[in-house]
Design a protein around this nucleic acid. Structure first.
Length: 725
DNA sequence: CTTGCACGG
């Protein structure tokens, strides 16, 4: 081979862990069989140290490397140590991802030896596998956040364990802030309870004189029938009856050594370190910077393949997105076709979130005889998926990052990864045995990388976050104790957006509409649209379309089938734009009952369509509970639907210019209609869009035609003038 | 004029 990528060995090796094996449910006997395995985990020797630290401190930070067993064991140690009481209190363990919450709950219930949903259970959106008996509940962090809105003190829980906190997802960060508040309030309320107990046991003291300000104790003789028979109810001026509520313990679990930040945030909480099970990974850097990482990735894979036996394990390549993956796949197929006889086959397996399930699962199947798999992956393989059999990792050093700046809007750009991300990628080579990692950048470039990625909360739109905080009673958003504070500009932008949507009044206080909107698991723009649909009589259509917009791709478009998939999409096309096109798609999908073949023929992403139906069902149920008539339909008068959308999306409008381009109303920027849109290359006086994302250009996604007059009516204060245009 | 990293409710 003429072209080569030169590598050099890094100083030292990097290591990672061994996964636990999946097993079948078999309750008591099975649990007994698992006990030896549990006691063999690295964390087992730290059991009593962990428990006593949790008893002594309100908050404990635990750093556990992959394979330490922290995720499955620590919740069980707490359960065994009496941190909960049957039928009354519970331990919550949060995960950033749904699959993790469910699979860990399954494993732990096996180890505990009870059926799933009994003593150990899980709750995620659309799926509740827990009961009155549940004392250990695994859930997504987003779900626990929702629970705070209906139970501001989280009174059911004695301990909350935040797992994977180092990932710093938007929801983990908000949860950290809110839990810190809740912990302080619980401490105050717990003291009230302790004091009530003391006064009750002292027959000489007058309890009325010994209470904290702002509270009073109800006497049993003035109580309703639902009062406990013995003793007195403890009532707090803010939370009402707080009888029996104790302190809230918080355990922050992290896989990396950034624990000091968590410890500082929780008033110097103690940090415990637990070692993992690891295999060494030999890491190489390129000797020269690579101008084209796709070419470098392609050549490196060929080098690994020819220089090591194919039985030495599969190759995992980290790339930035679908386009990169499809390009490298093509290069590899071309090269593999020219292998001389006797060289083992090379099987490229792409994997990214938008890929249909059937193709995703190929990654997990063992390669055929005399064949080596090359997994071409996005960040999905960094944390979300663990692919067995990987011994070689090729790291491009880049990923795609969503950004947000109120001045520019949203963006989606390829950027260098952080050091911790590079280490995480490297670790993927050492899950089962010693491995190798090839970094397609120099050691000097690695040294220049940021230590950690920027937390999500600093690079996304915050209107939904701010609405949630307001609904949870956080009045001064600018003073909220964020672990990493978003910019003042971003927070003010969110406050202004909520004001424009009439969720906040001119004092910045939550309006009745804002309270109503906060009930929805939706961006506030969407809940506003649903609200507007009642007056205009098209709630059924609006809920359908909002559900359709909750997934990011309704169609799957492979690079080589663009023409065909476009033709298939034409079947659903509405002249008014994407919103009604999507509605047509849903109706067609329902007519064939989501038939698999039909979806395949029309390039419809079936998994995402199922999610749409789940969201729709949840929204319908929620609306009914809030006494909205979800059957209100506008029939063929679909203009009403577009008008509703404008009541939430008046900020997302653009007007046609004499030169045929569109300029946004809010920022006077040139916006380009996304090529996948039914409005692409169409000229109408005005458009509105679901999203504006900067990639190489400002692209408007999910676009529909709008009457300029409707825009003026939707927000007379902002755009009243355009009716005169 | 030709395109969407990953998640969550």
């Amino acid at each position: 081979m003429a072209k080569q990528v030169a590598f050099q060995n890094a100083n030292g090796t990097e290591t990672k862990s061994k996964p636990t094996k999946k097993t079948k449910v078999d309750y008591k006997a099975r649990a007994l069989g698992l006990r030896a395995q549990r006691e063999n985990l690295p964390i087992y020797s730290a059991r009593s140290a962990i428990i006593s630290k949790v008893r002594e401190h309100s908050t404990v930070v635990i750093v556990g490397e992959t394979g330490s067993g922290k995720t499955t064991q620590i919740p069980q140690y707490l359960l065994e140590s009496g941190f909960t009481t049957y039928g009354q209190t519970c331990i919550a363990v949060t995960q950033p991802r749904r699959v993790a919450a469910t699979s860990i709950a399954k494993r732990v219930s096996e180890e505990v030896g009870t059926p799933l949903g009994a003593r150990v259970g899980y709750t995620i959106r659309f799926e509740d596998c827990s009961s009155e008996k549940t004392q250990l509940k695994f859930c997504t962090d987003g779900l626990l956040l929702r629970e705070i809105l209906s139970d501001p003190l989280l009174r059911r829980y004695t301990v909350v364990v935040l797992d994977e906190a180092h990932e710093r997802t938007l929801r983990t960060d908000i949860l950290l802030g809110m839990l810190k508040d809740i912990q302080r309030e619980r401490k105050r309320v717990a003291e009230l309870n302790a004091e009530a107990e003391r006064t009750q046991h002292n027959e000489y003291s007058d309890s009325r004189n010994s209470r904290a300000t702002g509270t009073h104790i109800k006497f049993t003789d003035e109580a309703e029938d639902d009062q406990p028979p013995i003793g007195e109810a403890v009532v707090d001026s803010v939370y009402g009856d707080v009888t029996g509520i104790g302190e809230l313990k918080i355990i922050v679990m992290s896989a990396t050594l950034d624990a000091e930040r968590f410890s500082e945030y929780f008033d110097q909480a103690p940090i415990l370190y637990v070692a993992g099970r690891q295999f060494p990974v030999t890491t190489y850097f390129t000797t020269q910077p690579q101008s084209d990482y796709l070419d470098a990735a392609h050549l490196t894979v060929l080098q690994i393949h020819t220089e090591t036996p194919s039985t030495s394990g599969d190759i995992l390549v980290f790339l930035s997105g679908q386009e990169d993956i499809e390009n490298v796949e093509r290069l590899l197929r071309e090269s593999a076709a020219q292998f001389p006889k006797g060289v083992p086959h090379l099987l490229p397996c792409p994997i990214f979130a938008a890929l249909p399930q059937a193709q995703q699962s190929l990654v997990f199947e063992p390669a055929p005889e005399f064949t080596r798999k090359v997994i071409l992956a996005t960040n999905i393989a960094e944390t979300s998926l663990t692919i067995p059999g990987i011994r070689h990792v090729v790291d491009s050093g880049v990923h795609k990052v969503r950004g947000f700046d109120p001045r520019i809007g949203e963006s989606l750009l390829v950027e260098p990864i952080s050091k911790s991300s590079a280490r995480q990628r490297t670790g993927r080579a050492g899950r089962e045995a010693a491995g190798f990692c090839y970094r397609l950048y120099t050691e000097a470039d690695f040294a220049q990388l940021d230590e950690d990625s920027v937390p999500e909360i600093k690079r996304c739109q915050l209107s939904m976050v701010v609405l949630q905080l307001k609904a949870a009673g956080v009045n001064d958003i600018l003073k909220f104790d964020f672990m990493d504070r978003p910019s003042k500009r971003a927070l003010k932008h969110a406050l202004l957006e909520l004001y424009a949507l009439e969720a906040l009044d001119d004092k910045g206080e939550l309006t009745q509409l804002g309270r109503w909107m906060s009930e929805f698991p939706l961006e506030p723009t969407y809940s506003k649209v649903i609200y507007a649909s009642q007056k205009l009589g098209c709630t059924r259509e609006v809920i359908d379309i909002v559900s359709l917009l909750s997934v990011d791709s309704l169609f799957y478009i492979p690079a080589d089938k663009r023409e065909e998939s476009n033709a298939a999409q034409m079947t659903f096309r509405s002249k008014d734009g994407d919103h009604l096109t999507y509605l047509n798609l849903l109706r067609a999908y329902n007519k064939v009952n989501g038939d698999r073949e039909w979806c395949h023929e029309h390039y419809v992403n079936r998994r995402n369509m199922r999610h749409v139906l789940d969201v729709r069902e949840q929204l319908n149920r929620l609306c009914t509970r809030l006494s909205l008539d979800t059957s209100k339909s506008c029939g063929a008068e679909l203009d009403a639907v577009l008008k509703c959308f404008l009541s939430g999306f008046f900020h997302n409008c653009a007007l046609l210019q004499p030169d045929g381009s569109y300029k946004s109303l809010s920022g006077s920027q040139t916006v380009h209609i996304h090529p996948g849109s039914s409005m692409f290359s169409k000229k109408v006086p005005a458009i509105f869009y679901d999203q504006l994302v900067f990639t190489n250009k400002l692209h408007a996604r999910a676009v529909s035609a709008a009457d300029p007059l409707w825009i003026a009516q939707a927000s007379p204060k902002l755009y009243g003038r355009i009716s005169q245009l």
